[in-house]
Write a protein that binds this DNA or RNA. Structure first.
Length: 315
DNA sequence: GGTAGACCTGGACGC
DNA sequence: GCGTCCAGGTCTACC
């Protein structure tokens, strides 16, 4: 029988709401099961990948069931990865501070944003979301897992590690994973992570300023202003926006902004200034509310059915 | 500092 | 079935 872990959660944590809070929950190897309202994926651990099924217990804790026995050290790493994905290290006090600045989310309790088990996966997922429509992002992540991800004992594949992608051929990424011109950038990023030139601990250390981290991200291959802003929020740093064509659509359709695209971008930046260090979450939950008004609650979304919906040109 | 064009994939559309 | 057009963010060259 495989290992089981019980992970304590903050009292305001809600698995369905907090997993289904950002589009990455729809990207492989993540699987949200609408029927059982549970989440599963393969986690990369010391002795290899392991499939992990997670649900929320009546006492609020998260129960994680693995497809094999984990060593004590693997249990520690798996726990750390789950805590990162669900932002369980963000306590109720921090969420309350956000609600004080933006009371619109107090009733729903929104505050946590879903992310990957590690920084590398978040960075690559962000690169696969640039300059493509959402269905292509879904396909790229599926193929990256199918082609380069390692298989767990129960037959599911995980997200490829930096070590694996650093050794992957350009032709494999372009021809089989269909990542297009991103092939070289993905390999370069993977090499920077494996060499230690990108240090996730430094990026996540709250002692380092948002300005320094943002400036560093902009030096990475394939990372421009949008991608850097998005990675910032995935690091738990919400003081920046990640503005793209979706933001333009939101500015025009919902916030009734007018003018050229450049002018609207400036208006957006100034509009969200009122939320200070929380501005990304205020912006993002507005966008998420809009999607839910069109597609229904996110915890009822099926990846294959809603996959084509999330593109500015579709709204 | 601002702008134009190339980089790729996949979907929509017309024939 | 084929060709064309378009959406999407980053990067480089150029003014």
């Amino acid at each position: 029988m495989g290992s089981r872990l019980k992970i304590q959660t903050p009292s305001d944590f809600n698995l369905a709401r907090d997993v289904c809070s950002y589009g990455y929950f729809l990207l492989a190897p993540n699987r949200w099961d609408v029927e059982s309202q549970s989440f599963s994926r393969v986690l990369e651990l010391i002795d290899g990948p392991s499939s992990c099924a997670m649900d929320q217990q009546p006492d609020g804790s998260v129960r994680a069931k693995f497809d094999r026995r984990l060593s004590r050290e693997e249990q520690f790493i798996a726990r750390k990865q789950i805590i990162r994905m669900f932002s369980l290290d963000v306590d109720t006090k921090t969420i309350r501070a956000f609600h004080k600045v933006d009371p619109r989310w107090e009733k729903s309790g929104r505050g946590r944003v879903f992310r990957s088990p590690d920084v590398f996966e978040d960075v690559i997922k962000t690169v696969t979301s640039c300059n493509v429509t959402w269905p292509s992002t879904i396909n790229m992540n599926r193929r990256l897992c199918q082609v380069c991800g390692r298989k767990s004992e129960s037959g599911f594949r995980g997200f490829p590690s930096a070590k694996k992608l650093a050794r992957t051929r350009l032709g494999t990424l372009r021809g089989r994973c269909r990542v297009g011109y991103r092939d070289q950038r993905i390999i370069d990023l993977a090499k920077l992570f494996t060499k230690g030139a990108v240090n996730p601990a430094w990026l996540e250390d709250p002692n380092n300023s948002d300005d320094d981290v943002f400036a560093f991200l902009l030096t990475l291959p394939g990372i421009g202003p949008y991608a850097a802003g998005n990675i910032m929020q995935l690091l738990g740093r919400y003081s920046r926006l990640a503005l793209d064509t979706e933001s333009l659509r939101h500015g025009k359709a919902v916030l009734k902004m007018t003018g050229t695209d450049n002018a609207i971008m400036k208006q957006l930046a100034s509009h969200y200034d009122q939320f200070g260090d929380h501005k990304f979450r205020s912006y993002w939950f507005e966008l998420w509310e809009f999607y839910q008004s069109k597609q229904g609650p996110a915890h009822t979304w099926n990846r294959d059915e809603v996959g084509s919906a999330f593109t500015a040109s579709n709204f």
